[in-house]
């Protein structure tokens, strides 16, 4: 479902050009749980930002679900983010003024869907946050916040879930819970997941691991 050929991304930071991606090749099957590991600055987040339609690639081919991200306009990428991908970040990134439930609802609202679907309760039960939904983020533990963030990321049933170091801010106990949940989402709901991690134990939760270095995938 993901096809990437010779993908390049160059940032222009003032006078200097930063070659964040120097020719990435990658294919991902539907239903796969892929882990991306690599040293800091190797371009992992940049790859995710392109996959998630947050920024356009500089050159190369990139198709997700048959859609060519190279040819998308700004508005089409916005629409793509609404419907096709869900993000989970290291810093949870919940809206602090809204409750957990409202954080999930607003993602649904942005996607233009008014109705909560009944099956989603299963997901909430699986995530173990059904009882914490009326609290604001600051009243939740880091692990709970990250689980709310996962719920928010998949509320619109995205084809692809992108998780950028989702356990980077969590202790080992909470990391294990979150990684377990991701694996169950993958197994039980066939959610395609790409996860960046620094941690070898975390990477072991995936079906497959790819290594990045200097803007390339090296195996």
């Amino acid at each position: 479902m993901i096809e990437i050929r010779d993908l390049k991304k160059t940032y222009h930071a003032g006078e200097v050009d930063v070659h964040a991606l120097r020719g990435v090749n990658l294919s991902v099957q539907r239903g796969e749980f892929l882990c991306v590991v690599g040293p800091s600055g190797s371009g992992k987040s940049t790859l995710f930002h392109i996959l998630g339609g947050l920024t356009p690639p500089t050159s190369g081919e990139i198709r997700i679900e048959g859609r060519d991200l190279r040819k998308m306009t700004e508005a089409e990428r916005t629409d793509f983010r609404k419907t096709t991908v869900g993000f989970v970040f290291q810093k949870y990134n919940l809206l602090p003024t809204l409750t957990a439930q409202e954080n999930i609802d607003i993602a649904r609202d942005i996607a233009g869907r008014r109705q909560a679907d009944p099956h989603f309760n299963e997901v909430l039960n699986l995530l173990g946050i059904a009882g914490r939904l009326r609290h604001k983020p600051r009243a939740l533990s880091g692990g709970e916040q990250q689980r709310v963030a996962i719920a928010r990321a998949i509320v619109n049933h995205p084809a692809l879930l992108l998780a950028d170091e989702p356990t980077g801010n969590l202790d080992s106990e909470n990391s294990r819970i979150v990684l377990d949940l991701l694996r169950r989402l993958n197994h039980e709901f066939h959610q395609t997941i790409l996860m960046i991690t620094h941690d070898a134990d975390a990477a072991a939760y995936g079906d497959r691991i790819v290594h990045m270095k200097d803007g390339r995938i090296i195996d």
Binding site: G52, R81, K82, R152
Partner: peptide, 11 residues
Amino acid sequence: EIGILKALGAG
């Protein structure tokens, strides 16, 4: 917050 909304697909 605005970045979050945009990542969620807000135009």
